[in-house]
Each structure stands twice: as C-alpha cells, then as structure tokens.
Simulated scan of single mutants.
Amino acid sequence: MKLSKRHIAKTITWRIIGTLDTFLLSWFISGNIELGSQIAFMELITKMVLYYLHERIWFKSKIKSSNKRHILKTFSWRAVGTVDTFVLGWIVTGNPLIGLKIGGAEVVTKMLLYFVHEKFWYRIDFGLDKRKKRQELKDLKSGV
C-alpha cells in the first residue's frame, strides 16, 4: 500500500482534534485527569492506525456525491471510533460503564467535528495533484 501525504495529513489533523475531544470527555466523565490523559494517549496510537486505514478504504470508493460520501464516512468512522474508545475506556478505568459513557458522548461530539473536518479537506487540493492538474486544464480551456 502506497503512503499518501494527503491521507497522512488528514490523519494527523483529525487526530489532534479527536484526541483533545477524547481527553476532555474522558476527564469530565471519569472525574480524573490522569485517566483522561491515559485514555487519550492510548487512543492517539490506535486511532492513527485505524483512521489511516479507513481513509485508504474510502479513497477507493466510487461514491461521487460529496454530501452522501461525507455522511457515510462520518457514520462508518464513528462506528470504528466508538468501539475503540469504549474498549480503551474500559481497559484504562476497569469499568465498562465509564467506557460506554465516554464512547456514547463521543458519538455526538465526534460526528459533528468529523463532518466539519471532512468538508474542510474536501475543499482543499493538498495531496491531490491530479485534481489540481484537471482544474488547471479546465481553467486554461475556459480562459480563466
């Protein structure tokens, strides 16, 4: 599998947002800043790998409608992310209910944050040399 600078950049920017959200939710729900930090740190590693793989799979998707694509990606990623957070919260705290609460809270916060992140990345050409070249040719033909 070829590494993509776009997918790596998206992974890093999303992970910064996601880790901060997880840290704050874990701290608030557990009432313990150390547990919140541990969960966020562990998630930093697991989610980077899972997100990159998710991006690679979706890159091959034939779905062209941007809104439909972003909504489906949002739900598929949230399913993966929620399971990961639940398991990590359970492992770190030793309490499956706390893991479930953190994962449940993230369903709302992360879906909103992820959707905005996807819309932002869809609008920029970073790492999409082919899209840039097509647009440049289109602009030349139209006289822009």
Rank of each mutant, 00 (worst) to 15 (best):
L128V: 11
F86M: 03
L20N: 01
K130W: 14
D125Y: 15
S142W: 07
I57H: 08
I39D: 08
T11L: 07
F120P: 03
I57A: 12
R15W: 11
H117L: 04
R6F: 02
L25Q: 09
R15N: 12
G104Y: 05
I12S: 06
V87P: 02
L44E: 05
I39A: 07
L25M: 15
K110D: 13
F23C: 02
D125P: 14
T82M: 01
L20E: 04
L137S: 01
W14Q: 01
H70L: 02
I17W: 05
L113S: 14
S30I: 05
K2S: 12
T82S: 00
K73C: 05
F126A: 13
V144Q: 04
F86E: 02
T82E: 01
H70G: 08
R56S: 11
L24F: 15
N67W: 05
K60T: 12
I91K: 08
G99Q: 05
K101S: 12
F59E: 13
R15H: 12
I33R: 12
R15K: 10
Q135R: 11
F115I: 04
N95I: 14
M48P: 00
Y114T: 12
K64C: 00
S65Y: 02
D84F: 00
S76A: 13
T82D: 00
W14G: 12
L35M: 14
H70Q: 06
W58L: 15
F75K: 05
Q38A: 13
I98K: 07
Y122V: 06
L97E: 11
G99P: 02
T11F: 04
I45M: 10
I91D: 02
K132W: 11
K132D: 08
T85R: 01
G104R: 03
V116S: 01
R131N: 10
I17R: 03
E106Q: 09
K133N: 09
I124C: 06
L72G: 07
I17V: 14
I33D: 11
T85G: 01
L97K: 11
S142N: 14
A79G: 10
S26P: 08
I29F: 13
T82I: 02
K119R: 12
H117M: 01
V87A: 04
D125W: 12
K2D: 08
M42K: 09
L44K: 03
R78N: 06
T93L: 07
D125N: 15
T11Q: 13
M48C: 07
M48D: 01
E43F: 11
S37K: 13
T46W: 07
H70F: 04
M1G: 13
E118V: 03
R69M: 05
E106Y: 02
T19F: 08
G103W: 05
G18P: 06
A9C: 07
K130F: 10
A9P: 01
S142T: 09
K62M: 09
V83M: 02
I63W: 05
K64R: 09
L112E: 03
E136C: 03
